[in-house]
């Protein structure tokens, strides 16, 4: 390539974003930013939805916190967060919050001689492990639950997400729900002060740490555990039953949830039901109630309406859990009632 064509090419590369922007606006483009946890399913929906709805979705998984910042500054059309905002926060920023899809977390372990879905754990034990109170795999409390497994005299190495993440938020929400000591000593947040263990970056970091260290335990999203064939465990749910991390167990938790909380901030953590998996969580979309551009706001709703109606299979293929139909109806009602331009609802279907 000679210098002139190189110059021309680089000039084109610089100009390209500016050239495509107007055409994007014409082709009904919407932008979103936030949570990394639902990113795979949002990308899949965006790809499939473009053909069906003509809406191009540009979603950037920059993290929930950054997504909240961007939607507060109105630099994107919708934000996405794993940890729900409080009603006061929503009021202040004039945002409507609704769930888009659900996911589940699973503990992963690396213990010689322990197979997938074999080890039985309870929330209290997990909390004590992460508090640094149970330090050996042959601790009497663990042995008592797992008579059929021979647990070695091996140090427990808890691994956690070092980067602030919605995954950590869901995990510590669960630990707080089942352990009062965790609740008072550590608490809930997208990043917390873990009393024991080692931190790694991202799901792949936690999975890698657990793979590397004999005796390690970690937590990842179920989708990640399945695609990477990680060794997961059983968990005891609120009904006292040990359940394996399966789609049926996740769906059971979702159907038992109470969605009437303001901002749809339903807790799916430690749900009732004999077959419910205890660590399931929705992820949320944030939409301005006073959109500057009604058309773009309507396109966001159109896109998620399409995803609710047609995206369930895609979500399940990626190990996410689609929202129950009644919840979807309530979301559509909320769109109609709360998102308005000049007093007129943007969503009229």
């Amino acid at each position: 390539m000679n210098r002139r064509s190189l110059l021309a090419a680089s000039g084109l590369a610089v100009a390209a974003p500016f050239l495509t922007r107007p055409s994007l606006a014409q082709g009904a483009g919407i932008t979103g930013a936030g949570a990394t946890f639902p990113n795979p399913v949002y990308q899949k929906w965006a790809e499939a939805g473009r053909a069906a709805t003509g809406i191009t979705v540009n979603y950037q998984s920059v993290g929930s916190g950054a997504g909240i910042n961007q939607i507060k500054n109105r630099t994107v059309d919708f934000g996405a967060t794993d940890a729900p905002l409080t009603v006061a926060q929503l009021e202040e920023a004039k945002l409507l919050q609704f769930p888009s899809v659900m996911g589940s977390l699973v503990p992963i372990v690396n213990i010689p001689g322990v197979a997938n879905e074999q080890l039985k754990l309870t929330g209290e034990l997990l909390a004590d492990i992460y508090l640094g109170k149970i330090t050996k795999w042959n601790d009497p409390r663990l042995v008592e639950l797992n008579r059929e497994v021979s647990l070695p005299n091996l140090a427990i190495a808890p691994a956690y997400r070092a980067d602030g993440s919605g995954t950590t938020f869901v995990w510590v929400s669960y630990l707080s729900a089942v352990s009062s000591e965790w609740k008072s000593k550590v608490g809930v947040g997208t990043s917390v002060r873990f009393p024991a263990g080692t931190g790694a970056r991202g799901n792949e970091g936690v999975a890698g740490t657990v793979k590397n260290i004999r005796g390690a335990i970690g937590y990842v999203e179920n989708a990640y555990a399945i695609t990477n064939k990680l060794v997961t465990t059983q968990l005891r749910n609120k009904a006292g039953q040990f359940v394996k991390p399966t789609q049926e167990a996740f769906i059971a938790a979702a159907t038992n949830a109470d969605w009437s909380a303001p901002g749809f901030a339903a807790s799916l953590i430690d749900q009732q039901g004999a077959t419910s998996w205890p660590i399931v969580s929705p992820t949320f979309i944030l939409l301005p109630k006073d959109p500057a551009d009604a058309e773009r706001s309507r396109n966001v709703m159109k896109f998620f309406d399409w995803a609710f109606r047609n995206g369930a299979t895609l979500a399940q293929e990626l190990e996410y859990i689609p929202l129950p139909a009644p919840v979807q109806d309530r979301i559509r009602a909320a769109w109609k009632a709360e998102v308005k331009v000049n007093g007129q609802p943007v969503w009229t279907l």
């Binding site: 920059v62 993290g63 929930s64 916190g65 950054a66 909240i68 910042n69 070092a162 980067d163 602030g164 993440s165 997208t190 990043s191 263990g197 080692t198 931190g199 970056r201």
Partner: peptide, 17 residues
């Protein structure tokens, strides 16, 4: 395990409002 100034900033920045 420990951390450094640069690693803390890099890890926590995405989740800071």
């Amino acid at each position: 395990p420990g951390n450094t100034i640069a690693s803390v900033v890099a890890l926590e920045f995405g989740e800071s409002e």
